[in-house]
């Protein structure tokens, strides 16, 4: 089942440490930075660990800018677009997985093609559309594009999960008087909960990470998302690294917890979405 390039325990341990260091060091370093004072930060040679840890930067991160509002904006937009994505993708995936469709192959290729679509190119028309609809600086301006960003991949993930659910179960439910749509939501969706969940996490992370559209369509402080808020944050005269680090930690933690708890699902979602696509 597995293939090991490396033999010998010491070599493996070294390799393992490299992997862990590569994955965690940047985040860890930002945590250290966030605990240092501005003056400790300006010492050479630099201190690796904070000598006199302080939480003042976290207080400043929340008081110098409406970080909590940015956090809320990010969460709200990500949650809404995830919900919308799941709804739309579930319906589409059911049709593709269960119904006899003449153009199934064509529809699937269109969805795969869209999943590699460079959304950046649509900045101008989206800016124009949102502007004429009065949606610049609004939650909807981001929720809709983010949904489109995630629907293709989520549909593919869900199709593969729906394929794995025996059709008999549905038929049985329908014999019991369930409609087909009823069977979808009462039988298929619950049974493929891991798949729905996986798709949901992908959609959430997509929305949480997006920067260009958020920066371009929602730059008003009231509607900034976390990445935009933190990037545009500038102190009076200098780039306040400790405060920015604290804000970054605040921004990293929610998603880190999410993927820590659900890591297996995330991995399976990434790979089904990726490999099947």
């Amino acid at each position: 089942m597995r293939f090991d390039l490396l033999s010998g325990k010491p070599l493996r341990i070294i390799a393992g440490v490299i992997l862990l260091f590569n994955g965690f060091f940047p985040a860890l370093w930002i945590v250290f930075t966030s605990l240092k004072t501005e003056s400790e930060l300006r010492v050479t040679p630099i201190h690796y660990l904070p000598t006199d840890p302080t939480l003042a930067n976290y207080v400043r991160a929340f008081t110098n800018q409406p970080l909590l509002l940015y956090l809320f904006n990010s969460l709200f937009i990500a949650v809404c677009s995830t919900a919308l994505t799941l709804f739309v993708a579930t319906l589409a995936a059911y049709a593709l997985a269960r119904l006899r469709l003449r153009f199934r192959g064509l529809i699937l290729s269109v969805i795969i093609a869209v999943s590699t679509f460079p959304l950046v190119t649509l900045l101008v028309p989206l800016f124009q559309m949102m502007r004429s609809l009065g949606l610049l600086n609004s939650y909807l301006a981001l929720i809709l594009p983010y949904t489109v960003l995630s629907v293709p991949v989520c549909t593919l993930v869900l199709v593969s999960f729906f394929d794995g659910i025996p059709r008999d179960l549905e038929s049985a439910a329908m014999v019991d008087g369930c409609t087909r749509i009823g069977a979808l939501f009462k039988i298929v969706v619950p049974l493929s909960a891991p798949g729905v969940f996986t798709a949901g996490i992908l959609a959430f992370v997509n929305a949480w990470d997006e920067f260009l559209l958020a920066l371009s369509l929602n730059s008003s402080p009231t509607f900034r998302t976390l990445p935009v808020g933190i990037t545009l944050y500038q102190g009076e005269f200098t780039f306040p690294w400790p405060t920015i680090s604290a804000a970054l930690v605040v921004g990293i933690v929610p998603v880190a917890i999410l993927i820590m708890i659900f890591q297996e699902r995330v991995v399976s979602g990434l790979t089904t979405g990726g490999i099947k696509g």
Partner: peptide, 17 residues
């Protein structure tokens, strides 16, 4: 924003909106 061009960028979106 603290500089003229930062403010101009900020106002660009605000006023377009």
């Amino acid at each position: 924003g603290n500089t003229s061009e930062q403010q101009a960028q900020y106002l660009n979106t605000q006023m377009s909106a």
